[in-house]
Amino acid sequence: MTILVSGASGRLGRLILERLIARGVAASDLIAGARSLGKLEDLRARGIRTVAFDYDDPATLSKGLKGVDRLVLVSVSQPDTPVTQHDAVIRAAAAAEVSALAYTSVYRASESTLPLAPIHAAAERAITATGLPAVILRNNSYTELYLGPVIRAQETGVITSAAGGGRIAAATRPDFAEAAAVAITDDAYLGRTLELSGDTAFTHADLAAAAAEIWEREVTYRALSEEQLIAEFSTMGLDEKTAKLLAAIDASIAAGYLNSSDRTLSEMIGRPTTSLIDALRSGL
């Protein structure tokens, strides 16, 4: 069984490859695909075959998928990602007649107000249209994304957001990577759309409490409006487009789109998901 993991130069793609090896898949049965082969030299040294796999270059996709049994399509998650990028990979996978496809989507993609949701929902529809045996991995937020506010809080003693009291059922990249490794190697998951979340959802007030524990100083949470948050981001040097994107994500959190008490992720990986405080400590 040959498994290609796309986006292998990124953090999630690399972790998926590591978890596949940990689960007993031979390095010689794995293929790492990325836009730039120069970023995969360390994987090649470990016995993993590497291929150019550029979502904007269909020729690399068809060539890279030759002889591939299964594909983990690590999605691009930028608000300006052209839908054609994912579509090109999906079409190439259908043409190659892969026996299984796993796609890393976003939590509640078909209904969420998160700015990235429409891109992923479109990719999910394209996968369904091919008729390929597939599993959709709707990942909640990555806990690592909250390291920045915690690091700044060491100096400022404040964490701000426009998320109000909204809860985030985040999990770490290693948690999600483990689930992807499980899903692509177990046919029982094919045909399913899996909403994957951390075991314990947290608020930004909880994040401030965790920061206070880590830094051993008082850290408070200050709730802002979207407009106030955008203004704060501008003082930090962020461009208006990025500031509005981050504020919109907070608005979706406030509306409950990242809240969950589901245990599908921990059940898949056979252990509790990484706690907030442990994830933050390991990332610092």
Rank of each mutant, 00 (worst) to 15 (best):
L265P: 10
V25L: 15
E240K: 13
D57W: 00
A251E: 11
S62N: 01
E240A: 15
E232G: 13
D187V: 04
A95E: 15
Y142K: 04
L145Y: 10
L194F: 06
K66S: 12
L147M: 13
I151D: 13
S75E: 02
T274L: 09
G7L: 09
R192T: 15
L30W: 07
I277Y: 07
P115E: 07
Y189P: 05
S9K: 10
T242R: 15
D54R: 02
T2K: 15
T220P: 03
T156I: 02
A92E: 06
A92V: 02
S225L: 05
L229T: 02
G13I: 05
Q228I: 00
L65H: 01
I253M: 14
R23M: 13
A122E: 12
I151W: 06
S105Q: 07
S99L: 03
S141M: 12
T81R: 03
T156V: 04
G47Q: 03
K244P: 03
P82G: 04
F176T: 07
E267H: 11
P149Y: 05
P133E: 08
G191P: 06
K241E: 14
R281E: 11
A188H: 09
S197W: 00
G157C: 07
S275V: 02
T113W: 00
T2V: 10
E111G: 08
M268E: 11
S234T: 08
G198D: 09
D56K: 03
A162F: 03
E226R: 14
T50A: 14
L147V: 13
L276D: 09
V98G: 11
L61R: 01
D80H: 04
T104D: 09
R173W: 06
T156A: 14
H204I: 02
N259S: 15
T273Q: 10
G166W: 00
A88L: 02
G237T: 04
G10D: 12
P82N: 03
L258D: 11
S36L: 03
A163K: 02
I214H: 12
L40A: 11
G164Q: 05
L12R: 06
M236V: 00
G164P: 04
G191Y: 04
L245T: 11
R281V: 07
G283Q: 07
P58Q: 01
K241D: 13
I48R: 04
L15N: 14
A188S: 15
S112Y: 02
S260D: 12
S225I: 02
L280C: 10
G10T: 07
V51N: 04
E111R: 12
A201P: 11
A255M: 05
T235D: 13
P115L: 07
I16E: 13
A32L: 08
L190G: 10
D56N: 10
A201Q: 10
I184V: 14
E213L: 11
L43S: 07
T172D: 10
G166K: 03
P149E: 09
D29L: 08
T50I: 15
R108L: 12
G270Y: 03
S105A: 11
I119K: 14
H86E: 07
D206F: 05
S9L: 08
S260R: 06
S6V: 08
I151F: 11
T81K: 02
T156S: 15
E213K: 14
D239K: 06
K39V: 02
L30C: 14
L194S: 11
A163I: 01
T172M: 08
A212R: 03
Y55P: 00
A117D: 09
T200N: 14
V106W: 05
P79K: 01
R271W: 10
S161E: 06
A231I: 00
